[in-house]
Amino acid sequence: MRLQYPSNIQIILVPCTGKVDVIHMLHAFEKGADGVYVVGCMEGDCHFNSGNLRARKRVEQVRKILDTINIGGERVQMYNLSSSEGLRFTQFAIEMNERILKLGPNPIKRAADKAA
């Protein structure tokens, strides 16, 4: 397919989105990520039964936390697709990239630069 997706996205492979914890997403933001999105299998299709459902709940938790501390909950998102949907993968990447570009850089990064 040779589909293109924005080059500023760094992919971190995990065995299942159920492995992704709240602290992993928070650490990404603390280290300056402008946005984080988790791409899991379709709901109901998790090989481990509930990994992607857990991930969705954790993404929601992070969203609330980021809203609470004024970083912006919309910087985090959960997506679902099946493994053969390369096109959807690129669509998610483009959608998230556009959203983050509109929001601008992670305010933590700017604050850290100012403090340094």
Binding site: L26, E30, I65, T68, I69, I71, I108, A111, A112, A115
Partner: peptide
């Protein structure tokens, strides 16, 4: 969370 809050 606290580190990010205070930095922000």
């Amino acid at each position: 969370v606290l580190r990010m809050h205070f930095l922000n």
